[in-house]
Simulated scan of single mutants.
Amino acid sequence: MLRFLRPVIARMTLPLGRALARIGISANVVTLVGTFGAVAAALGLLPLGELYIGAVVVTVFVLFDMLDGAVARASGRESRWGAFLDSTLDRLTDAAVLCGLAVWFYTGGEDRLLGGLALYCMATGFAVSYIKARAEGLGVNCDVGVAERSERLIIALTATGLAGLGVPYVLAGGLWLLALLNTVTVGQRLIETRARLTEPGGPAGAGDRQPAGGAGGQG
């Protein structure tokens, strides 16, 4: 849904990416700092009920993490390893946000239903990424769905931040919306992958390649 913004974001981040590259900071360092800062904030603040400040700090580190591509382009060091590392560590950030919310709901938030819903959102978010990666590992593209990673993270962080400001029902509404969008996206990607793998002239033998634990690039 936000795919059309990617070229705009790339142009906006390029000057700062060049500045970081000039002082010797690599794209992988940007990825690691952004990820571990976001994870630390999510797991350190959200379980304590610090929803607003937690959402703000996580957002800052997520935005910093977005600079890794700009740094790689500015330094001329774009690599498949860097893309793999970034995609893998993104899963940690996503999981940390929802895990932090789940812990809060099961403890101070005292809402086991929403705690379970946060865990469901985390599981289906992993499924969305896994289906795409597994499909690509079988030789087909599965870049479809109403909720990619950017949309999911925006919904979760916006709802969390507004809840921290005292807006009633917004976090529950955000999680229910996220659960719905994740479920729909999983269905869309399963249908798309099945269609591509079973269509005439599809990847030869794709349906037979089922290595144990064979995840694709995004995990």
Rank of each mutant, 00 (worst) to 15 (best):
I154G: 03
P15S: 10
V167Y: 14
P211K: 07
T198P: 10
R18E: 15
E151M: 07
F84I: 09
D111L: 04
L181P: 05
R3E: 13
R196M: 11
L63T: 01
L178T: 04
Q218L: 13
A163Y: 01
P7W: 10
K132I: 12
G24Y: 01
W81A: 03
G173R: 12
V57S: 04
G207H: 08
A135L: 03
A96E: 06
A159C: 04
G216Y: 00
S26F: 07
V30P: 03
M12E: 08
T124E: 04
L157A: 03
L162N: 04
V30C: 08
L117H: 08
G137M: 14
N141I: 07
G202E: 05
L14K: 11
D68W: 00
A74R: 03
R91C: 05
A27M: 08
V62P: 01
T185P: 01
L67Q: 11
C121D: 12
A204R: 14
T35I: 09
F4L: 08
N141L: 13
A123I: 11
E50P: 00
L101Y: 10
M12F: 12
D86A: 04
G137Y: 10
N182V: 04
G82F: 03
A195W: 11
L162H: 02
R73M: 10
A19N: 02
R149G: 07
T158I: 11
R73K: 13
P7Y: 07
A172P: 01
E50N: 15
F4P: 01
F126Q: 05
A40D: 01
V58A: 12
G173A: 13
L51S: 15
W176Q: 08
T198W: 02
L16S: 09
G214H: 13
A74P: 08
G187P: 03
L48V: 02
L2W: 03
L113Y: 13
G49L: 08
G108L: 15
G37T: 00
G34V: 05
V186N: 01
G17H: 00
W104S: 05
A72N: 11
L14Q: 14
G69E: 05
N141T: 13
A27W: 05
V186K: 14
R3L: 07
G24Q: 02
C99M: 15
V62L: 14
R149E: 06
G69W: 00
A10M: 06
L63P: 01
L20C: 07
